[in-house]
Amino acid sequence: MLTGNESAELVVLSLLSEGASYGYQLTKDAAARSEGHLRLTPGVLYPLLRQLENEGLITSSWDTVRAEDAEDAGEGRKRKWYRLSPKGKRRLGQRVAAYESLRRVIDAFVGVRPREEGTR
């Protein structure tokens, strides 16, 4: 489960790089992609989306969703769609590169076996 925006931002930008999406779908995609290990809680996701939009990293638009079995064309439910902006694409590239740098650093340590006693 993600508790920090630092990881959530990377995940959200990555998901949006694959196409437009909306909040609820993002939570589902994150869970599905991680086989349930990653849960973008709505309490973290929606303020983060607002922040990313404020920073110009994503753009948004509204459309109206109507029930399939609705008999009339009355008022439906609004849905806010998000898309990755060019600036967001650059940010994602940086985040990915930073993550890969970090992974290389960590790999250099986790592969080290403890020294046997008596050896120098």
Binding site: N5, E6, E9, Q51, R95, S101
Partner: peptide
């Protein structure tokens, strides 16, 4: 944004 949000490499 907080420094905590700068990304994994920052941390």
């Amino acid at each position: 944004r907080r420094i905590m949000q700068i990304g994994m490499l920052g941390i």
